[in-house]
Design a protein around this nucleic acid. Structure first.
Lengths: 242, 242
DNA sequence: CAGTGGTCTAGACCACGAT
DNA sequence: TCGTGGTCTAGACCACTGG
């Protein structure tokens, strides 16, 4: 009979499966964006159950080693995009600097009251509407960022007639003469639900990296409020400080 | 027979349970650090199973609304600590500014070779040893941060005889005349295992916010390399940029 | 259509925390 | 010792993806 008696600590099955798969990935036996064996195949291989296998997979997901694509399977994560929020490099340039292929899809554009957090940040009058842009951004075809952008209508007339899938910073500068002087970023680990989860191919309640940002032109005048939901395994922030 | 026919989308049970508990928390019917009903009580209440209840709980954990304390239960998260890595405010001061009670426990101190990442960052000679400090930091009695600190022995003689539970920045400044000129922070969502998970009362593979930091005195001379594992619901980063 | 992951049922045993 | 969460068994049905 098999026993580990005293040789090494007996590991729970979920950790053994995790370690096995993590090993394959670190040795590059599984390459980036390659699909893992299906959950049921892993059940067979480890003589275990789907609960346990899925537990192992979600641990690997938490670590950022793998990601899921809705009902298609589990895949090996490519390297994280390095992102410095304090630099003014836009998404396209950033991606290309790191040999990745970026894409942006405009999900919706609306004139709305908007969430209270946005109204407060932008200090708009009670009757003024905001423009809400919702965009999905991808790297190499994999969705990685779902963002909500709020702008005061009065500062950006005719905005909704423009091309809103490119760099917003460039557009604001070129067409509205906006120079961002500084910004305030808040970063935390949060979770995605509903439309956000769906768009990012995540399940409801999966963890994400959330960045909330206020951009200013001039000392006090806020002109943009964003909420970004990043697939957590897709990004690493770099914050140099002096 | 009960039906939602057309009135609203039928929600999966895990989401219903999540929404119910999230509601209690947001209405402050459950207060910060208060224990939630046990998993088995929730199973009874919702006529569901532990798998489903735990699924709901881990979603709330991902969002940062609740945290777990190993085999004691689930608790409502207090507000996040706001932390600006670019400021030189130390942990004690930071906590007290936000009306929290900080504590530090030195888990271990060793002279070792250390991980390759630390040796590279600190650019030490092949035969030089590093000092490794492992510390656990708490807020109001709840562990929130498990950190590994690596320092070049040559720069900090006799370090291990000193009080290592206070502010390291202050100690380095006072006893070794170190002035930090700049630093490089890398932030990502990762996962905790083994000793780190245990100390933070987490399960293996739970998500955390990981900060890796290199501190410099002078343009190029690295004097400290840290890896911080934060309980993700305990912290929000603030990054102002100019 | 077959195969995938997403969700769920109805239990079980274990290690550890509080007392 | 009792109650807690941590782990696990052995299935099931569903919605969606891809060919």
């Amino acid at each position: 009979m098999h026993t580990d008696a005293g040789l090494k600590k007996m590991l729970p099955a979920n950790i053994e499966i995790r370690d096995y798969l993590a090993g394959l990935i670190k040795q590059s036996r599984l390459k980036q964006n390659e699909r893992l064996p299906s959950e049921r195949e892993l059940v067979e291989q480890f003589k275990s159950t789907r609960i346990t296998v899925r537990d192992a997979l979600s641990k690997l997901e938490s670590e950022g080693l793998i990601y899921r694509s809705n009902r298609r399977g589990w895949f090996v994560s490519p390297p994280r995009l390095e992102y410095d929020p304090s630099s003014r490099v836009n998404f396209y340039l950033l991606a290309e600097q790191q040999q990745r292929t970026p894409a942006t899809e405009l999900i919706s554009q609306k004139r709305i009251k908007g969430p209270q957090a946005a109204r407060t940040a932008l200090a708009v009058a009670a009757d003024e509407k905001l423009i809400e842009l919702v965009r999905l951004r991808s790297l190499d075809g994999r969705p990685v960022l779902y963002e909500f952008i709020y702008l005061p209508e009065s500062r950006f007339p005719e905005l909704m007639k423009k091309d809103l899938e490119g760099s917003l910073t460039t557009l604001m500068q070129r067409d509205y003469n906006v120079e961002i002087t500084h910004e305030d970023n808040r970063i935390c680990v949060s979770a995605v639900y509903d439309q956000v989860a769906d768009a990012l191919s995540h399940i409801n309640g999966a963890p994400c990296l959330e960045i909330r940002r206020i951009r200013y032109e001039g000392e006090r005048k806020a002109v943009e409020f964003d909420i970004e939901h990043w697939v957590h395994s897709a990004i690493e922030l770099r914050i140099p400080s002096h």
